[in-house]
Computed example of a mutant assay.
Amino acid sequence: MATKVVSPAVLVPLQEALACAYWYKDDLRAFLRSATGQPELIAQLDWGGGSYKRAIVRQLVTTLAENQHRYFDTLIALILATVEIDPASLKRLDDGLTKYETATAALNVLRGLVEPYRAMRSEAEAAAQRRRIDHERAKKEQALARETAELHTKFLAMHSQEPQARGYALEGLLNRLFTVYDINAKGPFRIQGEQIDGAFTFAGTDYLLEAKWQKELSTTADLSIFADKVRRKLDNTLGLFLSINGFQPNAIKLSGEGGRRVLLLTEGYDLQLVLDGRIRFDELLRRKREHAARTGEILLRAADILA
């Protein structure tokens, strides 16, 4: 009996579909873990900040294809899970319709090649794989929704607290929020009066965090002092300034003028929409960074993203 193998003709379309269907590497990594059932193998891929999705996908598919005696079932599972991807979430990105159409075209090419591989694996196995992926995704989403709902309740209660107690409560909330989203915070955030300082790494970039909850709007001086802190770090460091009650309009304008932009601004209502489940925290950070890189504007409100 001949050994079953995946034809080389399907490997390039598989790589193209995977590279196009997910815009962010974190989303691609989560899908590959679930679709292959090989988290250790996925962890060995080069996910470094300078790596490209196509290189990562090529590395994985080449490993699976060259070791089919070991990974044949894994490769089949990846092919069949990939053709089930719905890339509709790409529409929310900048130039999203073009990205969606490109991904759909790549997926359709792969779909035209998968029938022999469906026959290699029973429909029951394929259905079980889809159920497992859907179950893991749903479980993760439910846990995230539950955690953020609890944090939302705490955030609303903070508004009636005294400043010092409110500051400590906000410190705990931010620590928990970063943990829930698997964002690497550099130790717990620390409070000084009504100001919270911390640091975290997200999408390959190091950030300093400054958070203020005071009655007054944050001023040009507040932003300038924090920007100076950030500029004293390495060049790839940015600052995220959270001002619960917002910023003076002139402070936003002046901080966004002249020199390299080193700050991203976020307000209490942004945090409210995250905790209310209207937008994911990691998506909000990505969109703020992308908008600032493209336009130079350091404040993109969550409400404007959702509009």
Score class of each variant (00 low, 15 high):
Arg54Phe: 12
Gly296Tyr: 12
Val5Lys: 10
Ala43Thr: 14
Phe241Thr: 07
Ala30Ile: 06
Arg146Ile: 15
Val109Arg: 15
Leu170Phe: 09
Asp206Val: 11
Gly256Thr: 14
Ala81Lys: 00
Asp46His: 05
Ala127Cys: 06
Gly37Trp: 10
Trp47Tyr: 03
Glu123Asp: 13
Gly172Cys: 01
Ala143Thr: 12
Val61Ser: 02
Asp282Trp: 00
Lys233Met: 10
Asp95His: 12
Ala149His: 08
Phe72Asp: 04
Asp27Ser: 15
Gly268Asn: 11
Thr36Ala: 04
Gln164Asp: 08
Gly48Met: 07
Arg286Ala: 05
Ala103Arg: 04
Arg33Val: 12
Lys53Asp: 09
Glu101His: 10
Gly172Ser: 09
Ala127Ser: 13
Leu285Gln: 00
Gly48Leu: 03
Leu14Asn: 03
Glu123Ser: 14
Pro39Tyr: 05
Leu177Lys: 00
Gly96Met: 03
Asp46Gly: 04
Thr74Asp: 03
Arg137His: 10
Leu113Glu: 10
Arg146Val: 15
Arg121Phe: 09
Trp47Asn: 08
Val83Asp: 07
Ile305Leu: 14
Leu273Val: 01
Ile305Val: 15
Asp27Val: 12
Arg146Asp: 11
Glu123Leu: 10
Ala169Ser: 14
Thr205Val: 15
Glu141His: 09
Arg121Met: 14
Asp27Phe: 03
Trp47Asp: 07
Arg280Gln: 12
Gly49Asn: 08
Leu90Trp: 01
Gln164Arg: 05
Arg132Leu: 13
Lys229Leu: 11
Thr98Trp: 04
Asp46Asn: 15
Arg294Tyr: 07
Tyr22Trp: 11
Glu147Met: 08
Ile42Tyr: 05
Thr74Lys: 08
Asp228Val: 11
